[in-house]
Amino acid sequence: MKFISAMIVAMVSVSVFAEEVPIVGSVESRCIVITDTDGIYGNPTPSELSTAQADGGVLPVIRFDVLQADFYKAVITHPNGFTESPSLDDTVTWSGSTSVTDTSDANMSSYDTDKVTYNNSTEYDLTVAGSTWFSVSSEADYGYSKAFPPGTYRAMVEAECIAQ
């Protein structure tokens, strides 16, 4: 009886031991660019396309995750041209801006005051580890209050994460 009990205990212990599977992981510095929300142009007037909510649009939102502070800078460029549109025979005037809409760390609150803007790009030093959500507004005005021809309009926001 003792021998059988000992055998059962031995078998159970062997089977438990056999199920030990190691999982190895490492966390390294990285930047992850995440498309949180794709933007949509609203058409509040015939001559205007805008991502503003009040104009019927949707602001594109991009999330940057950095695992270590001071390793990366974010450069976000709002559009100054269509990547897809019907044929346009007049000029399009572009405007836009980028701002921080949400953060995972209260210390990121200074990002908007410390940002550097040039041409149609906005640069942020990612000085705190964590997630930052940026929203990008874009507006296109066609000619002198001229109506945009019907069709699909597409423009591109560039979100860059550059190691410092």
């Binding site: 930047c31 660019v33 498309t35 794709d38 933007g39 949509i40 594109p60 991009i62 990547t83 897809e84 699909t152 597409r154 423009a155 591109m156 926001v157 560039e158 979100a159 860059e160 994460c161 550059i162 190691a163 410092q164």
Partner: peptide, 19 residues
Amino acid sequence: KIRKDGQSKTFISSRICSK
């Protein structure tokens, strides 16, 4: 890279640079 055939619905082009 965004596909020209319009199949890409995205509005955002991402670039990551290592140094």
